[in-house]
Amino acid sequence: MKFFGFVIVCLTGGLLLYGTMDLPDWGDPGSPASTHLSDYYIEHIVEETQVPNLVTAVLADYRGYDTMFETAVVFCAGLACFLLLRDFRPKKDRYFRHVPTGVMLHFKNPQTRLIAGNEFEHMDKDWVPSDMIIKTVCRILIPFIQIYALYVVAHGDFSPGGGFQGGVIFGSSLILMAISYNLKTLVKRVTEKFLSVFAALGVLIYVGLGVAAMLMGGHFLDYGMLAPLLPSDPGHIRALGMLGVEIGVGIAVMAVMVIIYINIVSEGRHDEGL
């Protein structure tokens, strides 16, 4: 199988390398990809939408319908991870730790209940205390990562950035919290309900803006029609519509990243993991 695979790979690679002979040189301004359609976009986007970041303008306005389903794909991926992995069955063995002394209690009978105050906390079998240096550094770092993520979302129209990127950065800050402390700390602060609602809310914001444009008498996702709703310069209304859409995308992507992470590392039990 290995030899057979190697032969196939060599054949395909050889054919593709032979095919590069017909491709334009690297960085050639006259290559077919950069001559027909892209010139129109580069020259007319600022005039039409007032958004200097061409990638955001094409993504959220000219191809807004496509990006809406893109967000729906991300949402579906989160949903698929949840449905495949989420496990609501209670575990047979439970461990509790007495916080002041560090003594562990092991419950073998699932019916047993521990009636105590806050001195005991539910633990995993292979729990180890997190390292203080890592915890401290991450605690300082996480707020700055989140501020940066919000900046990337909010400034996506004018500088490199956008909803997908900002959402991923925000989600990764939450994942960093789960790695540096433990998964329970994250799940306690950012509950599953919160994440599920936000994943759906992001897609809803996107679709809602499109429907709002329709209700105002325009086409679906035609942001120019939203002008009477917002007291702003009518020239900037498309930029504002794009910003709203990017916020929706950012929320959905953030929530889905965390859902995927939590479900995969804990095999759907949301209590232990990396």
Partner: peptide
């Protein structure tokens, strides 16, 4: 530079992350 490949690939990166998550699940 041509923005259109960037837009396409931004889309592709997101889909690849999503499919990778489902595949790992």
């Amino acid at each position: 530079i041509n923005p259109l490949p960037h837009v396409l690939m931004l889309t592709a990166i997101v889909v690849s992350v999503a499919t990778f998550g489902v595949a790992m699940a």
